[in-house]
C-alpha cells in the first residue's frame, strides 16, 4: 500500500497551466505534499480514534472520576471520598461473592470449551467427508443471539418442565432447581457459554492449524511418530499464538459475563436469591442502576478491569509453557 502511494506521489504530474500566479510558491507546495504524505494516513485512521476517545476513553476516565466520589443518582452530594469506595468494595462480601462466581463460571466454561475446541479443530483438520459442512456446522451456534441461547437453555434447565431434568429423571434423579445452588447454576450457565463459543474457537484453531507446513507432519510420519505424538509435538506448539489469542478473548468474555446469567435469573440483577450466580457485571449494574450508587458501581467496574488484566496475565504465563520452551 505505502509503496504504491509513494510511487504515485513521486511522479508529480504538475498541472502547468493551471493558475500560474500561484506557481512560484514552490516550498509551500512541497510542504503541503509532505504534509499530505505524512498526515493523511493519520487522518484516515482518525475516525476510529475519535470514536474511541468519545465512547471509550472519556467514559473510562469519567468512571475513574466517579469512582472517587460519593456519587448517587438523584441526590447525594457527590463529595470526593478518595479511595473509600474501593476500600469498602474490598471488604464487601457480596462483591467477593460476585468475583468468586465470575471466576468459577469462567473456569467451568473456558477449560472444557477450549479443550473441546482443540479436539474439534484437530478432527476437522483431517480429511473427512463433507468437511465444509462440518466446518460451517460448528460455527452455527455463533450466529444465534446470546439472548435467544439464554432463553432456550433456561427453559431446558427449568425445574418442573425442563428437558435436562426430564432426562435425569430416567436415572432416578429428583427434579433439580438449577438456579438454587452455586454448582448447578454455574453448570447451566457454563453450558450456555460453551454451546455458543466452542465452535468459534474451533474455527480459529483450525485456521491456525492450516498454516502449519505439511512437510513437518510428513517428516514426523517418516520418523514413525504416531498421530497423537504429532498433535502434541507439532500441532500444539505451532498454534500456540492462536491459543494465546483465544485464551485472552475467552478471559475477557468470561470475566464480563452478563447476558446469560441475567436471563437465567429471570432478568434480575441479583443472580439468584442469595447471589448464587451473580457475576461482577451484574453486581455493577445492580449497584449502579438498581441501588443508584454510581460511585460504588464505578469502583467495581475498575476493579473488574484490573481483575481482567490480572486474569490475562496469569493465563499468559500458563499458556506460554504449552509445548515446551522454544
Amino acid at each position: 500500500m505505502s509503496v504504491n502511494l509513494h510511487s504515485q506521489r513521486a511522479d508529480p504530474v504538475p498541472p502547468p497551466r493551471l493558475r500560474p500566479g500561484r506557481h512560484h510558491a514552490g516550498p509551500q507546495r512541497r510542504f503541503l505534499s509532505q504534509f499530505d504524505i505524512r498526515a493523511t494516513p493519520y487522518l484516515l485512521i482518525s475516525p476510529y480514534f475519535l470514536l474511541f476517545a468519545v465512547f471509550g476513553l472519556f467514559p473510562l476516565v469519567f468512571t475513574l472520576w466517579v469512582s472517587l466520589h460519593d456519587y448517587e443518582l438523584a441526590g447525594g452530594d457527590a463529595a470526593f471520598t478518595g479511595l473509600e469506595n474501593y476500600a469498602n468494595l474490598l471488604t464487601d462480601a457480596s462483591f467477593w461473592n460476585a468475583v468468586v462466581n465470575t471466576v468459577g463460571i469462567f473456569v467451568l466454561a473456558t477449560v472444557p470449551q477450549l479443550v473441546l475446541a482443540l479436539m474439534l479443530a484437530n478432527a476437522l483438520n483431517k480429511r473427512l467427508r463433507g468437511r465444509l459442512f462440518f466446518r460451517l456446522g460448528v460455527l452455527i451456534p455463533l450466529v444465534t443471539s446470546v439472548v435467544a441461547v439464554a432463553i432456550v437453555f433456561t427453559q431446558l434447565f427449568g425445574r418442573d418442565f425442563g428437558m435436562v431434568n426430564w432426562l435425569l429423571g430416567f436415572f432416578g434423579v429428583e427434579n433439580i432447581n438449577w438456579q438454587n445452588a452455586k454448582w448447578s447454576s454455574w453448570i447451566a450457565i457454563a453450558t450456555m457459554v460453551d454451546w455458543r463459543w466452542t465452535g468459534y474457537n474451533a474455527i480459529i484453531y483450525l485456521a491456525g492449524m492450516q498454516t502449519i507446513p505439511r512437510d513437518l507432519y510428513e517428516a514426523a510420519s517418516i520418523d514413525g511418530a504416531s498421530s497423537r505424538r504429532q498433535f502434541w509435538s507439532i500441532t500444539l506448539p505451532m498454534i500456540r499464538p492462536t491459543i494465546i489469542f483465544t485464551v485472552f478473548v475467552s478471559t475477557i468474555g468470561g470475566l464480563t459475563l452478563f447476558a446469560e446469567p441475567v436471563m437465567f435469573g429471570s432478568n434480575r440483577m441479583e443472580g439468584g436469591s442469595t447471589g448464587q450466580f451473580q457475576t461482577i457485571a451484574m453486581y455493577i449494574v445492580k449497584e449502579g442502576f438498581r441501588d443508584f450508587d454510581y460511585g460504588y458501581a464505578a469502583a467495581a467496574a475498575w476493579l473488574l478491569f484490573i481483575l481482567i488484566l490480572v486474569g490475562v496475565a496469569i493465563n499468559y504465563t500458563f499458556i506460554r509453557r504449552i509445548g515446551g520452551n522454544q
Binding site: 476513553l57 467514559p59 485472552f248 475477557i252
Partner: peptide, 17 residues
C-alpha cells in the same frame, strides 16, 4: 488485547454515563 480489554471495561461502564 490490552486496548480491547480497556474498551470492554469502558463499555461495561459507559452505560453509566
Amino acid at each position: 488485547l490490552a486496548v480491547a480489554s480497556v474498551m470492554t471495561a469502558a463499555l461495561a461502564v459507559s452505560a453509566a454515563c
